[in-house]
Design a protein around this nucleic acid. Structure first.
Lengths: 135, 135
DNA sequence: TATAGTGTACTAGTTTTCTAATACAATCAA
DNA sequence: TTGATTGTATTAGAAAACTAGTACACTATA
C-alpha cells in the first residue's frame, strides 16, 4: 500500500488570513515549488478537516476555488488531484492572463517606489537561483 | 488662481470592487502612469464625495489607507497631496517588500502555468516598451 | 449488495467589510 | 473674529465573507 506521503497544511491562526485562503496559498506555493505536480492526490477534504480541526466545507471551498482556476481536479467519491497542467489554454488567452498579472504587479510595485528594472533584476536572481534548488 | 486641473475618479458600479478600493487603485495607477507626482494636490474629500455621489468617509478611507502606505500626505484643513517619493525607506525593508511582492507574483503566475522565464521575457518587453511612452 | 471512503448541498450564525449620517476640528483668508 | 474650506471622529446599519452543523450523493472494492 506504500501510500504516497501526502501534502500537509499548516494554519497560522494569528495572521488574520482566512483559513480557506491559507489552504489555497499553500497549494499554489506547493505547485510553484514543485512539491505538488500533475496527478498528485491531495489530502482528502475530510482528512484536512480533521488535521486542522476545521469544517469540511472550509476545505471544500478552497479546493473548489482551485478547481475553478484549473489548478485542481476533483472527482466525487474518488478524491482531489492536481490538474494536468493547465498550459492547454489558448495561447492568446494565455498572453492576456499573463499581461493582466504583470499589469497588476507593475502597478503595485510602481506605487511602492520600485522601478521595472529593479523587478527585472530581482526576478532574474530568482530564476537563476531556482535552477540549483537550494533549501 | 489658475487652479491646477485636478485628478478625476471614475466608478464602475458593476465591477463588484468596493468604491474605496477603486479610488485607491486609481491613485496608484495615476502615480505609476506619471499623471500624479509628488506635491500634486488631490481633489478634496468633499469634492470627490460630491462628484461620485458617495459619502466623504468613503473617500477618506481610501485616502487614509494611501497615507498609511506613504503614498499620500494629508493635512487637516489644507488638503491631501501626493507624498514626496517614498523611496526613502530603509534599504533592507525595501528589499523585503520587493521580495514579498515577487513571491506573491511568482506563486500566482506559477500556479497559472507560467514559468519564471516567461515572466522575465514579458516584463523585459514592458521595460523597454515603457521607455518610449507609447499610448 | 454492502460498506467505507470520497466530495457536495443546504442552512445558519458570527464576524468583518463597506458605506452612510451626522457632527466635530483644524486651517486659511478676509 | 468670522466664515468658508479642508480633513476627522463617532455611530450605525446593510451586505458580504467566513466557517460550522448536518445530511446527502457518488465511487470503489469486497
Amino acid at each position: 500500500m506504500t501510500r504516497r506521503r501526502s501534502f500537509e497544511f499548516h494554519l497560522d491562526g494569528h495572521s488574520g488570513v482566512p483559513v480557506y485562503r491559507q489552504i489555497i496559498d499553500q497549494v499554489m506555493a506547493g505547485i510553484a515549488a514543485g512539491a505538488l505536480t500533475s496527478g498528485d492526490q491531495m489530502p482528502t477534504v475530510r482528512q484536512v478537516a480533521v488535521d486542522l480541526s476545521i469544517n469540511p466545507n472550509t476545505v471544500m471551498r478552497a479546493y473548489r476555488e482551485l478547481e475553478i482556476r484549473g489548478v485542481l481536479d476533483t472527482q466525487q467519491g474518488t478524491g482531489t488531484f492536481i490538474a494536468p497542467q493547465q498550459v492547454r489554454q489558448d495561447e492568446v488567452e494565455r498572453r492576456q492572463r499573463l499581461n493582466q498579472l504583470i499589469d497588476e504587479f507593475v502597478a503595485r510595485a510602481g506605487s511602492g517606489g520600485f522601478t521595472v528594472d529593479e523587478l527585472l533584476e530581482q526576478l532574474h536572481d530568482r530564476a537563476t537561483g531556482s535552477q540549483t534548488k537550494r533549501r
